[in-house]
Design a protein around this nucleic acid. Sequence first.
DNA 1: GTACATAATGCGACACTATAGCGTAGCAAT
DNA 2: ATTGCTACGCTATAGTGTCGCATTATGTAC
Lengths: 153, 153
Amino acid sequence: MRAAQGSRVSRAIDRAEATCLARGGRLTAIRRRVLELLWESDEPVKAYDLLARMRAEGWSSAPSLVYRALAFLGEMGLVHHLASRNAYVGCRRGGEAHCAQFFVCERCGTVSEFEDAGLSARIEAAADRIGFVAAASVVEIRGCCTRCLADGR
Amino acid sequence: MRAAQGSRVSRAIDRAEATCLARGGRLTAIRRRVLELLWESDEPVKAYDLLARMRAEGWSSAPSLVYRALAFLGEMGLVHHLASRNAYVGCRRGGEAHCAQFFVCERCGTVSEFEDAGLSARIEAAADRIGFVAAASVVEIRGCCTRCLADGR
DNA sequence: GTACATAATGCGACACTATAGCGTAGCAAT
DNA sequence: ATTGCTACGCTATAGTGTCGCATTATGTAC
């Protein structure tokens, strides 16, 4: 799986580039690399970890390097911001507007993404009812995961 | 409404105290005051704003003063943490476990709480399905509120 | 190709948010 | 008295995110 990851990510990057162009944005080298790093990770990545990796690869070392890239990618719908952990996730579905949902274990920190169309629909409906326009909403459900429960942790 | 607030909050404090006792916690003076400040505010309050008010009232000025109180109140189910804004909200329903839901306008910052029992149920169901135990989950739906849309902001 | 406008980046300083660590005080049970 | 526990005071520091301004790249119109 690890071996196939390179080409999978690279195909995804092509789609991401198209998404950006369609929305009037440019997937520059920095932004592309940040997106790749997010996609290559199995779990949410923190901004300063991203920054450290970028720095190790020779990019500028200022925080705004990643924060600007993350802001852009967020607008393009390519990354989600997990506010409860101050971490960022590459979106599985490059560009399509959708409602991301995550279970966040407060004991071990594991984050699992899931998708419940009915849940998304209900959130959209609730927003509609009060005239609120939901943009890239991220539902973070905090609690305790199966493994931690089993371990009695 | 403003005039009635004092006694309303005071009755709520009595209930909160009972909730804490029932859960084996103590609603000390600091914790009580922090909770009151949250309840007295019409909108989410940031930790350092709370700290400033506490300091003005003569309490210790260390950040941990409020962070500890907030952590405790969170465990008791008396406050919610709005991670997307780094702000805290006094829970309308003192102590009852429930799933809080908020619309957060990214333009003007306004936060409106709402309650959709069906949404809560669906989240619980999704959690059950994967054996995840949701604890005091907070759903934050980011987007744009009616007023900002009307103003074209 | 040149000039211009715009977008993106480099960089430094700073503001804001949160936690760690350690010591002390009070209270209750042994 | 000793121990264990919880809450608190206090300092330092870690971690997270933003702003402003100069500079460089990129696209567009002439």
